[in-house]
């Protein structure tokens, strides 16, 4: 059973001309866990992963697998499996020939081709030219490529893009089982909700900088809870809240009051004689914490 290596980024920076895509990023990714690498579009996720894989040269800093840079790995495909977002196929090649090329390059047995195609559910389309593949099929073929060497480390850039609900369910289970076998699994996404059910740890970046890292549960408490309140006579409620000196905004389902305790809002309404139709505490979801982090850009 392949054992995952620790991925370590230290002070990695990438500038493209004037743009700083990744700025002084440092974090580690542990084996045996699924780590979500999150950030909005343009945050620098792909650039960071490409630097890790030796495809993009960092302006400064290093990224290693168990202390070795990708290009120094003795058998890269057997150590690290990577699938990056771009569709990297010659459209005129069949899936099985596409993978066959790289088994030759990496000195892997050709039998792996059929095995990984079976694993990702493409066995029926093995001899079809990739040019005719759908987005989801391409995504699966990219994943098949990453599994060729049965690697201990998986690095996947937005693997859920383009998958159907069944595929999403499958890949979540698959990633968890890979981590349970002791492998290191690093998955990027721009949506927390996409990976929330399968990740153990999260690394969040925005504008090329680290804004949060830790277990998924560390995101739970971040945004102050709010109270949602509404009344059949909304004007009287607004007047009562204003008199009590509470700040609020208008939301879709009522007024959003920036206090944690629904009882406090209920009391104010009662005292002012305002009938309430809605009164509850809004649970701040993980997604909200995530959004607050990447929009504010503040560290916790």
């Amino acid at each position: 059973m392949p054992i995952g290596a620790v991925i370590e980024f230290s002070n990695i920076t990438k500038r493209f001309g004037q743009t700083t895509a990744v700025n002084d990023l440092s974090f580690t990714v542990e084996p045996g866990r699924v780590t979500g690498f999150l950030g909005p579009n343009g945050a620098g996720k792909t650039t960071t992963l490409r630097m890790l894989l030796g495809l993009v040269t960092p302006t400064s800093g290093t990224a290693t697998f168990g202390g070795l840079r990708y290009r120094d790995l003795p058998r890269p495909l057997d150590t690290v499996g990577a699938a990056l977002e771009a569709a990297s196929f010659h459209p005129g090649r069949t899936a099985s020939n596409h993978l066959g090329v790289y088994t030759l390059a990496a000195g892997l047995p050709r039998t792996r081709v059929a095995e990984v195609l079976q694993l990702v559910g493409l066995a029926e389309h093995a001899d079809q030219r990739v040019g005719g593949y759908s987005l989801g099929m391409r995504q699966r073929l990219g994943l098949a490529y990453s599994l060729l060497g049965d690697p201990g480390v998986l690095v996947l850039d937005e693997p859920i893009n383009g998958l159907d609900p069944e595929g999403i369910k499958w890949i979540r289970g698959f990633l968890s089982s890979m981590a349970a076998e002791g492998r290191t699994v690093l998955v990027s996404s721009h949506l927390l909700s996409e990976v929330q059910q399968s990740v153990d740890d999260v690394i969040i970046i925005a504008k090329g900088e680290l804004v949060h890292s830790g277990p998924l549960s560390s995101l739970d408490t971040n945004v102050a809870p709010q109270v949602i309140v509404d009344s059949p006579t909304r004007e009287t409620l607004i007047a009562a809240l204003t008199d009590a000196g509470l700040a609020f905004t208008s939301g879709r389902t009522g007024l959003i009051v920036a206090v944690p305790d629904p009882g406090q809002v209920g009391h104010i309404a009662f005292a002012a004689g305002v009938e309430l139709s809605v009164l509850h505490r809004q649970k701040a979801g993980l997604e909200d914490s995530f959004l607050a982090l990447v929009e504010g850009g503040d560290s916790l």
């Binding site: 290009r71 990056l84 990297s88």
Partner: peptide
């Protein structure tokens, strides 16, 4: 040029980083 055009440099350099 096909390697550039179809972005097959990525899997190629992953399999053979040199």
């Amino acid at each position: 040029t096909g390697e550039f055009r179809h972005q097959t440099l990525t899997p190629t350099f992953l399999a053979t980083p040199r």
